[in-house]
């Protein structure tokens, strides 16, 4: 990974997450360190992540599929998140996470996730 601050294309220290949509569209989202991917997505009105419950782990409308090479680097999963993955609109896979639980840190800069077709 390139160091964020040295990369002229970024021009900022804010880490980026790449979102791949089911229709092939790709978007880049800036997520502050300490902020969840869900919060950044909803604050920026990015489609595909609803985050209905505001991150309380009671809605499962912030489902994403994390690219396999990033899975191990993510913060661990609590039992509540595992339980709530049963409720996602689209069938979860081994790569499924709830994006309200993916809290940004410098080593997650460049994270790649795919969005499900539906969230509810």
């Amino acid at each position: 990974m390139t160091s964020t601050s040295c990369n002229p294309e970024r021009g900022t220290d804010v880490p980026k997450v790449t979102l791949h949509y089911p229709n092939g569209e790709v978007r880049t989202l800036s997520v502050d360190n300490g902020q969840s991917v869900m919060k950044a997505a909803t604050a920026n009105m990015v489609p595909g992540i609803i985050g209905e419950c505001g991150g309380e782990l009671t809605c499962a409308t912030c489902h994403v599929f994390v690219e396999p090479e990033w899975l191990d680097r993510l913060p661990g999963q609590e039992q509540e998140e595992v339980d709530m993955l049963d409720l996602t609109s689209e069938e979860p896979t081994e790569c499924s996470r709830l994006s309200c639980q993916i809290v940004m840190s410098p080593d997650l800069d460049g994270l790649v996730v795919r969005l499900p077709k539906t969230q509810r």
Binding site: L57, T58, A60, E80, D86, L87, T88, S89, E91, T118
Partner: peptide, 17 residues
């Protein structure tokens, strides 16, 4: 407290369920 109690029944109400 709300989140804890809600999760118990949320299990039975997901779209796929």
């Amino acid at each position: 407290r709300h989140a804890r109690v809600r999760r118990v029944i949320a299990r039975g109400f997901g779209p796929r369920m």
